[in-house]
Structure formats: C-alpha cells, structure tokens
Design a protein around this nucleic acid. Structure first.
Lengths: 121, 121
DNA sequence: AATAGAAATGATAATCATTCCTATATCATG
DNA sequence: CATGATATAGGAATGATTATCATTTCTATT
C-alpha cells in the first residue's frame, strides 16, 4: 500500500461527507502535497476493487466516495446535494424472492429535501 | 410538439429496449433524416420534464431512456447490459415510514446476470 | 550498500457523453 | 408578406474520468 493510497483511504475514513475525487485530492494534499488527481482516481478504483471503499455514482454530478463499506443506502438532498447514510432498505434475499432470480447486488438512492434546505424555502 | 419531438417520443414508445440517445437518433432518422444528436438530447430532456419519458442513468455507460412512465424499476444484466422492467420494488410510503422523512422519489437498480449470459458461462 | 526489476507516481493528453452556441429554417399570426 | 417567436442542425465546448508514459520509488537479493 503506497503512501498515497494509504492517505486517500485514511482521509475517506475520517469523514462522513462522501467527498468527490476533487475534494479527496484537496484533503489528501495536506499530507502529500504533490498528489495528482489521476493518482486519486487510480487508487479509488483499486480501493473499490478491494472493497475498502464504495463509489456512489451520482446522476448529475461527480461521483462520490464512501470509506464505510458496511451495507447501507444513501439519502440525497435534491437542493444542496448532501448525502446521508441510512440503514439498508433492501436485502438481496428479499429482492431474489420478489424477482425469482439470483441477484448480484443493488444500488438504491432516495431523494428528499433536507431539513436545512426545507427551512430556507 | 415539433415533428422531431413527436418522432422521438413515438420511437421510445414502440420499443422496450431502453435505448441510448445515440440509438434513438438512429431509429428516429429513418423518419427525420436530418435529425441532430443535440436535438435528441434537448427533446429527451423536455419529455422527461413533461413526465412522458424517463431517463435511466447508467453508472458506467451512456444513459438510457424509457418511454413507459408507469412506476417500475429496472433489472440490469452485468454482462450484456440489457435492461429489464420489473414491478416497483418500493413505495414512497414505505420509504417514508422507514426513514421518518418526506421523500421526493427513489432510484433503484438491481443487478444480475441474465439467463442468456448465464448460459454462455 | 549496490542494483535490477517491478510497481506506482505526476503530468499531460485523450476520451466520450452531454451541453452550449449560433446562424438558419419553420411556423403562426396580424 | 413581414414579423416575431421558437426549434433546428451542426459544430464547438465542457468536464469528469481514463490512458499514457517518462520518471521515481520500493523491494528483495546479492
């Protein structure tokens, strides 16, 4: 595990904001000033393959990354884009029962307007 | 509703393959040969706003579009990328009950390996 | 410690879906 | 028929992500 990879993982584990690759770059550069964006993307992919990090693909914005890999789903504010963790809303087993087919996985995103943004309206 | 927009919608309603913007362009050009890709994208966005079409954002591939807007979810083959329709696997109400918050909507994709692709292994 | 080979890095260029821009065409209406 | 409003085609621009590649850093072995 290279220094860069280590720092990237550590940064992700210290934060619950589900940062983008860019944001990870900024945070990690405080410890590895010369870090390049390509290196961030490359290591994020490796870490995802190793199941140490989870990618959260965003529909109309840069993807975000999550250092916590226990199963959970995401609740996303349509206004400010903030991503909240929520307990799993599905199980593979329930899906397989409903669908009558072996399931490899699922990706679920719930959209809402967060309390902060609601107040502002 | 312009001729182009009409053809794009009609093409989408005649097909259950959830085509990409490119594929829609090819199909629609049989009836509007001069059709431009930008026009396809613009009208797809308009049709989505009018709730006549639904976008299916893909995680690692071009987005796909669905001319059927009754609520349903999607089952996606990890091998060939084919997209199948399945009945809704969630309700807003159930999600709101679980989460204790008003929900605007959700987007759920289930991954599997389709029978065709399974056979080939 | 010296070194060969492998692996990872930083910098830059390439990719590719999608959006933006602009001059032109179409259309409805007075 | 002129006018204004709207939509179009085509091409250029954008922006996130990947690929490339020369150089640097590790690692293990002598």
């Amino acid at each position: 595990m290279s220094r860069q990879k280590e720092v990237i993982l550590d940064v992700l584990r210290k934060v619950r904001t589900h940062p983008t690759a860019d944001e990870i770059l900024l945070m990690a550069r405080r410890r590895v000033p010369a870090l390049a964006l390509g290196t961030v993307y490359r290591n994020l992919k490796l870490l995802c393959d190793e199941k140490k990090v989870r990618r959260i693909p965003m529909e109309d914005a840069p993807d975000r990354y999550d250092g916590f890999t226990e199963p959970h789903d995401h609740l996303i504010c349509l206004d400010c884009g903030k991503v909240y963790d929520v307990p799993s809303l599905q199980t593979k087993e329930a899906l397989e029962a409903k669908l009558g087919a072996k399931v490899s996985g699922y990706e679920m995103k719930v959209y809402f307007v967060c309390p902060n943004c609601q107040r502002e309206e």
